Simulated assay, not measured.
Amino acid sequence: MSAASNIHSLLARLLPARIAPVPARPRQRQRLFAGVGMPSQRAPLGERFGLVSRLDEAVDLQAVYSDLRRLALEGNVAALNDLGWIWLNGKYWIADTQLAGHLLRMAALQGSAAAWFNLGQQHYFGKGVEVSYEQAAECYRQAFERGMLHAAAALGDLYEEEICDAEQDWQVDLVEALRWFMKGAKRGEARCRFEVGYRFLHGLYVQSDSKAGLYWLELAAAAGVMQAAEELAVHYSSRDAARYLDWRDQAILMGSNLALTMKLEDQIQP
């Protein structure tokens, strides 16, 4: 029997014919939903199309599941990851973290960057497994190597002291955190660009370089990172009135309460 046939046979046994719906208590369901990981079928920025909107708007979740199950059995790795992601979280049907882990590992071994990232999230949050930063870091590295740029931000966060559990056998390394943020920034990851720009501008774990800091912050702001626009507004507030007003107003358009407060203060100043 071929490897593909083995996988199909195993999947056919793992995937139930019907899902177990979550009890209809929408407010409680939303509170319990941690939003761990991400699906493969994500909507482009500014668009509604994607797995989450499809699930949120579904009249019949069983029909959506049956479609994903069919695709997974046909060898669609994205559908396999998405089923693992849904069972990991338990928002749309009752969670099964053990099944989720099986599906995500199968998708990861077939090259899915999203599945590697989701496995990292499973180990980081301890959903059905022991919390392990070491395992999470290795999964994030695998995801990044396969093109999941957001994994660089996850690794940067993981190496930062304030998010790490003291009970974990894990070495905080702020220089390593910056290295991963820089890796992501160079590849175009917007959040990483903000983190790098902020550190250069303020001289955090790196020699202060305002030119480099502003460069990365502007790239992040152009990609829609509100905090980057806020930082630029604050920076230019005492240096360049025209640039200050431009970044302040851009931050307001992004939804910044800080920038709105700055505008109100500007209006009442003599």
Rank of each mutant, 00 (worst) to 15 (best):
G203W: 04
Y236Q: 10
G75Y: 10
R199I: 04
V77C: 08
D96L: 07
K186W: 04
I7N: 06
Q98L: 15
R239W: 02
E265N: 06
A137S: 13
M182Q: 07
S5T: 12
A12W: 11
L219E: 14
A114N: 05
L245Q: 05
L73M: 09
D266G: 07
Q28F: 12
L99E: 04
A143S: 06
R141F: 00
L51A: 00
E195Y: 07
A115T: 02
Q269D: 00
L80C: 02
L32I: 10
I268S: 07
Q41W: 12
W116D: 02
G188M: 13
V131W: 02
A177R: 06
L264V: 06
Q110E: 15
R105N: 14
P23H: 12
Q135Y: 13
L103S: 02
F33E: 03
M148L: 10
M38I: 07
I268L: 14
Y205E: 09
F117E: 09
S66I: 02
R31P: 04
L11Q: 14
A153K: 06
E230P: 11
L178T: 01
D165N: 13
H150S: 10
R25W: 02
Q267G: 03
S238V: 14
S9R: 13
L99H: 02
R239L: 11
D60Q: 05
A24F: 14
R48M: 09
M148D: 07
E160S: 09
R69Q: 03
F181D: 10
A136N: 01
P270T: 13
G128D: 10
A212D: 03
K211R: 08
L68Y: 01
K263D: 08
E195L: 14
